[in-house]
Simulated scan of single mutants.
Amino acid sequence: MQSTLLLPAFTVSRLVTKIEKNTKGVAMLDRAQWFFVGMLIALSVQLSQPVAAAVPAGKTVQTAQSNSSGAADKLYKEGVQLYTQGTVEAKRSALVKLEEALKLYRQAGDKRREPLSLLGIGKVYNDLGENQKALEYYSQSLPLFRAVGDRGGEATTLYNIGGAYLELGENQKALEYYSQSLPLFRAIGNRSGEALTLNNAGLVYSKLGEKQKALEYYSQSLPLFRAVGDRGEEATTLNNIGLVYSELGENQKALEYYSQSLPLTRAVGDRGGEAVTLYNIASVKRHQNNLTEALNDIESSLKIIENLRNKITNPELHTSHLSQLQNYYKFYIDLLMQLHQANPNSGYDVKASEARKRASNP
């Protein structure tokens, strides 16, 4: 995010945050999509296909199998509706619905819809941070998608498995699954899936220290996101490219990409992404010794993050976001003290003292 690709966990939807200790920046990671949207599209196609055999006109034949599938479809859709509410509570309720749907699909012998349910359940567990549990369900759905020849479902599952391994820190495993999903997305012409896979693979290569390889993958994903009109992911990719250049010491180049990302995050209303990009811009400007400008950017970033934090009601999420806020404050306080050393009579030490109080009493 998160992105995440590491974005502040303050974006409860799409991104995850990680602050690097060297304050080089924050990458943005796709998270809320372990490609759930693709799964929903696949489901709508599946649900349009008849389950029972055709019957003579004017006669009604109702089987236990069709009843089970019909009830399962209803439960599945209810689960999806709960999931899209985005809260932890709603997602846990979605799990119940999806598990019930899965049971009925199995009773009906519905081999096309069963893996969709498994994929959905795995996705929800992934969102809840239970990655091993997610992998259990993904590993069940994968052979079923292959058995019915659903390459879209197969590609999506492989992508999601890669994402789960990425969050578990198993980078080589993540790459292994991304390398399997990528040609499948290309084969079926799914440019969004292709772009997301390229972006996440780029993140893995960046984490492995292969910065040029990361740039290659990010640079391939960028025009694809633009082609499908996904400005949010375009912003994510621009931010990720900027971070790689920052890590390579090419600060001006990094700033160019961050500056392209910022208006896009604002245009799509991604406040968390905006906060992260501002943080990254502040980090670069600090390295360039543009301390006053860096201060303005980090203050704008903190204002957004504090506003987002105040809207979080879930205790677990609140604790997680609070941890990230502390990292932002640390950067802010260090910057203020750096400014104080250069301008001892300008009151930066007072601002740093006030910031320490806010950080300790959020």
Rank of each mutant, 00 (worst) to 15 (best):
M1E: 12
T4K: 12
L5E: 06
A9G: 09
T11F: 07
V12N: 07
V16C: 02
V16R: 11
K18P: 00
K21T: 13
T23V: 01
G25W: 04
D30E: 10
D30Q: 02
W34M: 08
G38R: 04
L40T: 13
I41A: 03
V45R: 13
V45A: 12
L47Y: 13
S48Q: 14
Q49C: 02
P50L: 06
P50T: 07
A52T: 02
A52R: 14
P56N: 06
A57Q: 14
V61T: 10
V61I: 14
T63P: 04
Q65F: 01
S68W: 13
G70V: 00
D73T: 08
Y76H: 09
E78Q: 15
G79T: 02
Y83A: 12
V88L: 12
L95R: 09
K103I: 05
Y105L: 09
Q107I: 09
A108Q: 11
G109A: 08
R112E: 10
R113L: 14
P115G: 09
S117Y: 03
L119K: 09
G120E: 08
G122I: 01
G122Q: 05
V124N: 06
V124M: 03
N126T: 00
D127H: 06
Q132V: 01
E136I: 07
Y137N: 13
L142N: 13
R146V: 10
R146W: 03
A147H: 14
A147E: 15
V148M: 09
E154V: 10
N160I: 00
G162E: 05
L168P: 05
G169N: 10
N171F: 12
Y178L: 03
S179I: 00
Q180I: 07
Q180C: 10
L182S: 06
L182W: 05
P183G: 04
I188N: 11
E194S: 08
A195S: 13
L196T: 12
T197M: 09
G202C: 02
L203K: 07
L215K: 05
Q220N: 06
V228G: 05
R231L: 13
R231T: 01
R231F: 01
A235Y: 01
A235F: 00
T236E: 04
I241G: 01
V244Y: 04
Y245G: 02
E247L: 10
E247P: 00
E250W: 11
E250I: 03
E250K: 15
Q252L: 15
K253W: 02
L255G: 06
E256I: 00
Y258P: 07
Y258T: 06
Y258L: 03
S259V: 04
S259F: 06
L262S: 03
L262C: 03
L264T: 10
R266Q: 15
R266S: 10
V268S: 10
V268G: 05
V268Q: 04
D270S: 15
A275H: 09
V276F: 01
T277W: 01
A282V: 03
V284Q: 12
H287L: 10
N289Q: 15
E293R: 04
E293L: 11
L295M: 11
N296P: 00
L302S: 03
I304Q: 05
R309E: 01
K311P: 01
P315A: 07
E316F: 08
E316H: 03
L317W: 14
H318M: 03
D334C: 01
L339R: 08
A342M: 12
A342L: 15
N343H: 12
S346E: 13
S346A: 15
K351P: 00
K351L: 15
E354N: 15
R356F: 05
K357M: 10
K357R: 14
S360H: 11
N361T: 09
